[in-house]
Design a protein around this nucleic acid. Structure first.
Length: 535
RNA sequence: GGAGCGUUGGUCAAGGGGUUAAGACACCUCCCUUUCACGGAGGAAUCACGGGUUCGAUUCCCGUACGCUCUACCA
């Protein structure tokens, strides 16, 4: 939201500078401690959009010295997935976003799983029915489905509810009878006929709806579980949530929530809403989905997720070789920036600089290239000691034995600027610790001749005599030999590199030779010569 | 269909009544580097359209187009 949007809404007579007004509005609205919640459904892996929602919640809370709560919204038992909740907490831990309250961390407002709060919601639903703000509806799902098929754009609303099976259309006696017979029913909100429902969104400014356009949403399902609509409002109230951030896809149902607040707890108690822009597909249009990642070859989940039913694993950013610092960073700047040129932020800096007003209104297409850049930057920026413990197992998995830690870290630091992913270290540094398994012979072969072969044979002889083994000496011997044989050193450098490294990459060759030692250097040269043929 | 929301280079974006309209990613050229990266210099490329308001609109207003989200006893 821009300052001007606020200015429009503020009385023209107040001469409070807009930034202050804005601050009053968002920060000290009611002198209450800031409390935000992330409320995921445990239905699968957490994708980019979800993590960004957590992140913005977390940053806002911590920026204001408030609490960050995680509440599990598991009211739909048909969609419940085993392991999904644990996955969510593992992801938060990896990202370094520690909840102050959650089913795992406890807290004064437990339980934090909606399935464990079932009785609470019924009581509020009853309150609404008693006040005439909600009603029983006995129509079965099948009946309604048939209606939708039959009537285009069918909605359960003020015009249709009079002819459907509910406590508004039926006689009191009929309703009592149905209830007594334990007929399954849902509770629906009774939307007023023609009222303007508006609220101030922290990102979008004033947003308005007319109640005539919104249908009578189900509040309590036939199984006694609340729908999201009832549950968020009740729990946000009970858990004293002051600011509620969620994806933009929730905007159309905001009027239902506003109305519920009005009926149940009073608008002055309502948290301030902010509807976050969506993360879009890189190509085409629409919300980024797991399928897009699969299709385009990049992760959309934070960490690997294995579906317990299909046993199918979806790759995550973590396993792809992303640093959590980079992951957090790239998500934070997708739809937000601090107004300066800065692009690299630590979590601490994000907490300090974050402001919900600077979040964009429009969705952002996800750019994996840029995401990779962030990771590369973070790998480069951080000392290797920060991630050597993550990288070491990757080498071990390939059967590469590692030297002592100091040496290992030193090697990582020398090659880190060539790594986009943590996994790249295996290729970029593996040759320091192990003879290359594959050597790019094809890159040497075409220009290989008797003279070059002789050079390397002689080089082996020369190097064998060396008692001092450091890069300066090795380079000097190499060049002198080249000169004496009237071959340009440049023509020999690449073959030499490939012999030692396996391919056309890596840091200075003589440094590598110095590191791997005399015996190993000679061994690698010999081995490759043996595999080359002279045309 | 309806409602709501959105729209600055290919992408992320700063900015906002008068500017040569920042910066980053990607792309191209060159330098550095006897490899690959890193780094450095440069290049190409943009305010969706139409009306207003105004001396002046990318910026403010109104339309239009386009896009997205929702339209479930899912969240």
């Amino acid at each position: 939201m821009r300052f001007k949007d606020i200015a429009i809404n503020s009385p023209p007579t107040t001469n409070i500078p807009t930034p202050l007004y804005l601050r009053l509005m968002t920060e000290t609205a009611s002198n209450k401690k800031v409390r935000v919640r992330f409320a995921p459904s445990p239905t699968g892996g957490l994708h980019l959009g979800g993590v960004r929602t957590v992140l913005f919640n977390y940053l806002f809370a911590k920026h204001h010295g408030g609490d960050f709560i995680v509440r599990i919204e598991d009211t739909d038992q048909t969609r419940f997935v085993e392991g999904a909740e644990a996955y969510i907490f593992n992801t938060l831990e990896w990202c370094g976003l520690v909840p102050d309250e959650s089913p795992l961390h406890g807290g004064p407002f437990a339980p934090y799983r909606q399935s464990e709060r079932k009785p609470i919601y019924r009581q509020y639903a009853q309150q609404l029915i008693d006040a005439g703000k909600a009603y029983y509806a006995f129509d079965t799902s099948e009946e309604l489905e048939a209606k939708r098929k039959e009537i285009p754009n069918f909605q359960y609303n003020q015009t249709t509810r009079t002819v459907l099976k509910n406590s508004l259309a039926l006689s009191k006696e009929a309703v009592a009878e149905l209830l007594a017979a334990n007929t399954p029913y849902v509770v629906r909100i009774c939307m007023p006929e023609n009222e303007d429902l508006g609220f101030t969104d922290l990102i979008r400014g004033e947003v308005h709806f007319n109640t005539s356009q919104v249908d009578d949403k189900v509040l309590l399902k036939a199984d006694g579980m609340p729908t999201y609509h009832l549950a968020v409002v009740v729990d946000d109230y009970l858990m004293q949530i002051t600011h509620a951030f969620r994806g933009e896809e929730w905007l159309p149902s905001a009027p239902v929530h506003v109305l519920l607040w009005q009926y149940l707890f009073g608008l002055d108690q309502m948290p301030q809403w902010a509807h976050l822009p969506l993360i879009l597909k890189p190509d085409g249009n629409g919300k980024l989905s797991k399928r897009d990642g699969d299709r385009l070859g990049f992760p959309t989940f934070a960490m690997d997720w294995t579906d317990p039913k299909t046993n199918e694993t979806t790759i995550g950013f973590k396993e792809r070789g992303f640093l959590p610092q980079a992951f957090i960073n790239l998500l934070a700047v997708l739809g937000w920036n601090d107004g300066t040129d800065q692009e690299l932020f630590t979590l601490q800096e994000l907490i300090e600089k974050f402001s919900i007003e600077r979040v964009h209104k429009g969705g952002a297409k996800f750019d994996y290239e840029k995401a990779k850049w962030y990771n590369q930057e973070w790998i480069k920026t951080l000392p290797a000691t920060a991630y050597s413990h993550i990288v070491a197992p990757l080498f071990e998995a390939k059967g590469i034995a590692l030297p002592d830690n100091d040496q290992f870290v030193a090697v990582l630091d020398t090659v880190k600027e060539r790594c986009v992913f943590l996994n790249d270290f295996v290729l970029q540094a593996g040759f320091y610790f192990q003879t290359p398994a594959v050597v790019d012979l094809a890159a040497i072969q075409p220009k290989w001749d008797v003279k070059k072969q002789q050079f390397f044979v002689d080089l082996i002889a020369q190097y064998q005599l060396q008692t001092e083994w450091n890069s300066q000496v090795l380079e000097q011997v190499f060049k002198e030999l080249a000169t004496s044989q009237q071959i340009k050193a440049g023509e020999l450098m690449l073959p030499f590199r490939i012999m030692l490294v396996g391919g056309k990459f890596g840091p200075a060759v003589f440094d590598i030779a110095a590191f791997i030692g005399q015996a190993e250097t000679l061994h690698r040269i010999q081995q490759v010569i043996a595999q080359l043929t002279i045309a």
